Simulated scan of single mutants.
Amino acid sequence: MKRNFIIVFPEIGKGGAERVAASIVNHLIDEGYNVIVISLGPKHDYQFLELSEKVEIFHFSRKSKFDFSAFESIKVMFESRNVEYIFCIDFFAQLYMSMLRSHKKLNFKIVVNLHITIPKKKTDYLVNFLASRFLRKADWVVFISKNQEKYISSRFLLNSACKRTLIYNGIDTGKFIISNGEERIRLRESLLASSREDLLIIKVAGIRIEKDHETAIRALSYFHQVYAYKPKLIFVGDGDQNIKKGLENLSRELELTDYIVFVGFNEAVNQYLSCADLFTLTSHSVETFSLAALEAMSCGLPAVLTNIGGANEMINENNGSLSKPSDPIDIAQKWHLALAKDFNRENIRAFVVNEFDITKMNANYLKLFQHIEDSLMT
């Protein structure tokens, strides 16, 4: 008999949390589970997640954040399938399902997988704090970094009785490999019209407030003023068009239009990473354990990341450095030091392959779910 596995999203977007969840879902399908995906947001095209065709997807769109009109429909689904535990992505999905459990007097356990550390807004902090109050001692919290666990446990006064575990994010290292010199030159010319002499710093991130592209642009401006060479900054990713327009205006004001490229959303991220000399992230909140950073390092790129979330759990002296959030001068200085250092690309990749390959992550989640199922039987 196939085991049911229910995974609940607040909304299915294109972020790292969704990509991690999609990998877990497909692995569970391969292991013989019957997987049901519940989205509490609007219906989208999910082809980019590459979910197995065997996955069932249900949408319970809300008219407002706290629209509970779907409670009865979800209750009927759970009772008909004898649901004993569910897997929630981040705090809001857990809060919604906890309130369903309480209101409808259901008895399923909740496993919440957290992908945020510092909330980007005060309202997010309040929702997360409220959600943590609903966790019971039989529930589980899955953290994706040690720093995240420390922060959330202290700031949200997490129920000390609930169970917790740490599972690092993983990536498909087979898709992100080191390109040889000739291939790198060809990709630079074809994708970015750049020569082999250009130094390229790449940032792969959605254009959102918390990703702080503005500080990256100001760091590049400072870099050009202080140092004797002028690298280019490549932004891969799309998002808020108003923010993007402001970034383009800032680039013009700082006379950097010849040195900043907005690629937009592109599925061939690995090719752009292969072109670059250095990877960077300049986020000031939310970022917890970046898939983009792991993918870059899997391609052999050194990385300069702002020191938030679990950045210091993936960065060491052999693969990059950490910078201060919202500090363009410090970020520029760390870029300069990284570009001047002779990193061993093979060693950078080997670290990711050994520690953060997707097969290791999937195996750890499967082990957790099997442990929970064994405890339910006893």
Rank of each mutant, 00 (worst) to 15 (best):
S23E: 13
P42E: 12
Y46E: 11
L130S: 13
T280C: 11
K75M: 10
A205G: 04
I243L: 15
E373L: 10
S194N: 07
T117Y: 05
R196C: 08
D277T: 14
S285W: 01
K63H: 08
F369L: 10
G15W: 00
D212S: 01
E72W: 11
N362D: 09
K146D: 10
S375Q: 12
H115M: 02
E373F: 04
E317L: 14
L305T: 07
G237R: 03
R155F: 11
L254R: 03
L322K: 07
M77Y: 01
D238K: 11
L126Y: 12
P119E: 06
F66N: 00
K163A: 02
A193Y: 09
L305I: 09
D374N: 15
S298C: 11
D277H: 14
S145C: 04
R252L: 13
Y365N: 05
V263I: 13
L187I: 01
K211N: 03
N312H: 11
S132P: 04
K54Q: 14
G239M: 01
H44M: 10
K104H: 12
N107Y: 12
I260P: 00
D342R: 09
N242Q: 15
K334M: 13
E189D: 12
S145R: 07
S321K: 09
V25S: 00
L366S: 00
I116Q: 14
E253R: 14
I178A: 02
I207S: 10
D30A: 15
V111Y: 07
V83P: 01
D342F: 08
I331Q: 00
N249V: 09
S98T: 02
K324M: 15
F129M: 05
G320E: 12
S190I: 10
R101H: 05
L199I: 13
I201D: 03
I144A: 03
I201E: 02
I116K: 06
R81Q: 12
R184D: 07
F156N: 02
N169P: 08
L199H: 09
L339V: 07
K211D: 00
P328I: 01
W140T: 12
Y96L: 02
L337M: 13
F5H: 03
K324A: 10
R186E: 11
Y96N: 01
Y229N: 14
